[in-house]
């Protein structure tokens, strides 16, 4: 099976030491370190495991600048065979639809049975996977947390409200957006990355992909971020009252309703 996994380089915000920039429309990026989007990493691991079992190859693709090459290399160190960097000044500032359009062009340049994306990335829109499927006119399943390979189709599990799982059959070729927890991604050390340091990663621009430069990028974007702020701290806290057992019951109730526990 030929699998294409779309990945993104995102700021590492685990330690949430995020500050707003002076303009107030983005986060201060100077002090940030970057890594591969966590969801994408699960998608790549899943693709590698599928190929290990059923044959084929994994290609990773990203839309970004030269620095994005590092995440492609990281995923190649995991076991992806090929990497493709989609890079062009014209792509800068693309909205979700623009990114999906660029990826669609890349998908059409190859011959893939399955396209995977992470369920979402740093900005939390979770839009590219769905749009890409629509543009390709492929079937789509989101928030996938299990995949079984069948003949010409896949059986995919999806996480739904309340921690329930539904199973779907989906025909290939298709697009899947992958939820974290579907597997345990392998570790990639410096040594692994060095091993793939000299592998050629082809870069493709708008003309290589046959994209009209005017249809993507900042000018074509129909969604624009106009503000970015930390919400004001809410007032007070809810005090639970009663006996210890009552408090515990109320707390469990609250955690359940907020999705904290199942």
């Amino acid at each position: 099976m030929e699998i294409l996994v779309c990945v993104k380089r995102v700021p590492d915000t685990a330690e949430n030491e995020i500050e707003l920039n002076a303009e107030g429309n983005d986060i201060e990026r100077d002090d940030l370190v970057y890594s591969v989007n966590e969801w994408d990493n699960y998608a790549v691991e899943e693709a590698i495991q599928m190929v290990d079992k059923h044959g084929g190859s994994v290609t990773v693709v990203t839309v970004g600048d030269e620095e994005s090459e590092e995440v492609l290399r990281r995923e190649m160190a995991m076991g992806a065979e090929k990497g493709i960097l989609l890079s062009d000044d014209a792509f800068e500032g693309s909205d979700g639809k623009g990114v999906a359009a660029i990826l669609k062009a890349a998908v059409e340049k190859g011959s893939y049975d399955l396209i995977m994306t992470g369920a979402q990335a740093d900005e939390g829109y979770a839009q590219v996977g769905g749009m890409l499927a629509a543009m390709l006119d492929y079937p789509y399943a989101s928030l996938v947390n299990s995949i079984e390979v069948g003949d010409g189709k896949l059986k995919v599990g999806r996480e739904v409200e309340g921690g329930n799982i539904e199973m779907n059959e989906i025909e290939l070729p298709c697009v899947l957006s992958i939820q974290t927890g579907i597997n345990e991604p392998r570790y990639v050390g410096i040594r692994g990355i060095r091993k793939v340091a000299s592998v050629e990663i082809p870069a493709m621009g708008a003309s290589d992909l046959g994209i009209d430069a005017g249809s993507v990028g900042e000018d074509a974007a129909k969604v624009r971020r106009i503000d970015y702020f930390v919400p004001e701290m809410g007032e007070g806290a809810e005090m639970l009252e009663g006996s210890t057992d009552e408090i515990i019951d109320k707390l469990i109730e609250l955690l359940k309703s907020k999705g904290g526990i199942k």
Binding site: S35, P185, R186, Y187, V188, G189, G192
Partner: peptide, 18 residues
């Protein structure tokens, strides 16, 4: 070397690298 590392250790290792 085989990438076989518990998730609980991958985060701190990656952070140490970065």
């Amino acid at each position: 070397d085989d990438g076989n590392v518990p998730q609980s250790l991958q985060k701190p290792l990656n952070a140490l690298g970065k």
